[in-house]
């Protein structure tokens, strides 16, 4: 399923829509190049929950944790070199927690995820236009 966004607001709306469609899932892998709108997507989802937390990029902090009605973890594995480091930061506990977990740059752990998940792909077409594509390949 493909969605097209030409603004931050549109990405928020798409996030709300996708999250509603997959409301039974808790694990979401966010893939795609820099500037694709991955953090904006998570921001949009929190907004759709009526949650006012300031969503910022997890690239440096690795994990951003938000307290909405339930916990939401936004993780970026870019700075980690392999799965051992991911385990070291407690990726298993986050995945097992039953809370919403969004993972950017998930490639190093992707094959080992036991939980059902979907991949959301972000593509920057030009400076204002992005394609957001949902790929269902999780072990259901």
């Amino acid at each position: 399923m493909k969605y097209y966004s030409n603004s931050v607001e549109k990405t928020y709306q798409i996030a709300a829509e996708i999250m509603k469609r997959y409301k039974s899932l808790r694990v979401f892998l966010l893939k795609g190049e820099l500037g694709g709108g991955k953090t904006t997507f998570v921001k949009g989802f929190l907004k759709s929950l009526g949650c006012n937390e300031n969503v910022t990029s997890p690239t440096f902090t690795i994990v951003q944790e938000y307290d909405c009605n339930e916990k939401i973890y936004h993780i970026d594995l870019y700075r980690l070199s392999d799965i051992h480091e991911a385990i070291d930061i407690g990726i298993d506990e986050y995945l097992d927690s039953g809370s919403y977990v969004f993972i950017e740059w998930p490639e190093i752990i992707e094959k080992e995820i036991d939980e059902a998940y979907i991949i959301i792909n972000f593509k920057l077409q030009d400076i204002n236009n992005r394609i957001i594509e949902v790929i269902e390949i999780g072990k259901q």
Binding site: N54, V55, T56, F60
Partner: peptide, 18 residues
């Protein structure tokens, strides 16, 4: 005030990445 998305240091790093 604070950042609403990327941190300043991150902007440096991401541009370096590109």
């Amino acid at each position: 005030g604070r950042t609403i998305d990327d941190a300043a240091g991150e902007a440096f790093d991401k541009v370096a990445r590109i």
